[in-house]
Design a binder for these strands. Structure first.
Lengths: 69, 69
DNA sequence: TGACAATGTAAAGTTGTCTTTACTTATGGA
DNA sequence: TCCATAAGTAAAGACAACTTTACATTGTCA
């Protein structure tokens, strides 16, 4: 019953042919943040989530999901 | 060009006739978190945003918006 | 082979999310 | 008037988001 956030950022990023560094600079965070994010190592802020979803033009809910494990 | 998060949680909460405490317990955070959130004092995590949006059955984008100021 | 681009790992530091506790204030009903 | 409920303020602390720097790994191409 511990919730975590699962995301498909990596899928959308590679689908657009972007590097992690390019995406990082597009949404104004460090490359480390993108790496850790794609690895599912942490729960981003809604600000970052909205920026990334906005960049890929998909609803936040499509990129980020609550996973119960 | 500094981004902040603006939200309509208070509007949706009162629209449903809920108290801050009830909403807090629904989404499993403290009452303080709801108070601070409604006052726009901070940027919540995507986990909390998804929980609140899910509870009100609205898209995250409708509840939380990036505001430039 | 050597160099470069992309990704990953590690670690330490800063900031800020969220908690807990406790006190204050306003409103309304018995 | 008194009590209960709802909302607000304050402050200290835990821990997690995000930064910066630096080095390692892999694949590709001249």
């Amino acid at each position: 019953m511990k919730e975590k956030i699962q995301n498909d950022v990596s899928k959308y990023r590679t689908g657009k042919g972007l590097t992690q560094e390019e995406l990082a600079s597009e949404v104004e965070v460090s490359r480390q943040t993108i790496i850790a994010l794609e690895k599912g190592n942490y729960t981003p802020s809604i600000l970052l989530a909205l920026k990334i979803a906005g960049y890929f033009k998909v609803p936040v809910e499509k990129l980020f999901k609550i996973s119960y494990e």
